[in-house]
């Protein structure tokens, strides 16, 4: 599988990672090499095999649908790069 720079650019956008144009070529080569190597999985017969969804043979536990944590905005916001009046702040999203 060979990825072109346009595809890499699009993946980078989906992942919200800024990749400078001059890095795209090199990155496309690296990612293509990794995908080429992964292609060998096509050799494995998986006809009728169920995809693994959990490595542990366990049923997920249930708990009461109640609030059991919270009530400490100061601790939650303690690491915020920018904050105001008990909220995180981000660049304006509505014009």
């Amino acid at each position: 599988m060979s990825l072109d720079t346009k595809t890499v650019n699009n993946i980078a956008f989906l992942a919200r990672i800024k990749v400078e144009d001059e890095r795209l070529d090199h990155l496309a080569g690296e990612l293509s090499a990794i995908l080429d190597w992964i292609e060998q999985l096509a050799e494995v017969d998986t006809e009728g095999v169920l995809p693994m969804t959990s490595v542990a043979e366990a049923t997920l536990p249930w708990r009461k649908d109640v609030v059991n944590d919270g009530g400490y905005p100061e601790r939650v916001l303690a690491n915020a790069p920018e904050r105001e009046d008990g909220f995180y702040t981000v660049p304006k999203v509505v014009e």
């Binding site: 999985l41 096509a42 998986t46 095999v49 169920l50 693994m52 969804t53």
Partner: peptide, 9 residues
């Protein structure tokens, strides 16, 4: 999905 199936195997 293919990888998850191989993982089962």
């Amino acid at each position: 999905l293919k990888a998850q199936k191989v993982r089962t195997r």
